[in-house]
Computed example of a mutant assay.
Amino acid sequence: MNEMSRISRRSFGAGALGAAGLALLAACGQGAQAGASGASSGAGGGGGGGTGTYANKGMDFFFFVMLAESIKRRTEELGFTYNSTDAKQDSSQQFNQAKTLLVQKPSFLVVDTVDSGAWAPIATQTKGAKVPFGAVDSLVTDGEIDFQVAFDNSMAGTLAAQKTVELLKAKYGTERGQVFNGYGALSSAAWNARKIAFEAELAKYPEIQLISRPTDGSETTARQVAGATLSEFADLDAIHGPSDSITRGFITAMQTADRLKKVGEEGHIIVTTIDGEPQALQWFRDGTVDAPVSQDPVAYGEICVDMLTTYTAKGQAIPLGAYDNKDYFWESSVIDSTPNGPVMTIPPYIIDKDNVEDPRQWANVVTQKWGIKQ
Rank of each mutant, 00 (worst) to 15 (best):
A161V: 12
F80G: 09
G157H: 05
K99W: 10
L102Q: 06
Q97N: 11
K99Q: 13
A185Q: 04
G173S: 06
E166Q: 14
A161W: 00
W119K: 05
T85N: 12
P132N: 02
P106A: 10
A197I: 02
A120E: 10
G177S: 05
A150K: 09
I122K: 02
N96W: 08
S92R: 08
T141W: 07
S107K: 11
T113D: 05
D142I: 00
A197M: 01
I196K: 15
A160N: 00
R176E: 12
V136D: 00
D90W: 06
Y172L: 04
V149Q: 03
T81M: 08
K105L: 13
S187P: 02
P206F: 14
G157Q: 07
Q89E: 14
R73M: 13
T158L: 15
V165P: 09
E166A: 06
Q89F: 15
A203K: 11
V165A: 10
V114Q: 07
K88G: 11
M155Q: 15
F133G: 01
K127N: 09
E175R: 08
L102G: 09
E207I: 01
G182R: 13
Q97Y: 07
T75Q: 07
P121M: 04
E77D: 12
V111W: 04
A193K: 10
Q148L: 14
S92H: 06
V131A: 08
I208D: 00
N153D: 14
A123T: 02
D146H: 04
L101R: 04
L102W: 01
A197S: 12
V165T: 09
L167P: 07
K169M: 04
A118M: 07
A189R: 07
T141M: 07
S138P: 01
W191Q: 05
S188L: 11
K88R: 11
D115T: 08
V103P: 12
T158H: 05
L78F: 08
E76I: 06
A150Q: 08
D115K: 07
P106Y: 02
G128E: 14
Q148C: 10
A200C: 09
G128V: 03
K72N: 06
W191M: 05
L202D: 11
P121R: 04
Y205C: 09
P132S: 04
Q209E: 14
Q104R: 13
F180S: 02
L159I: 13
K169L: 03
S188R: 07
N83V: 15
T158V: 15
A161Y: 00
V114A: 03
K163C: 11
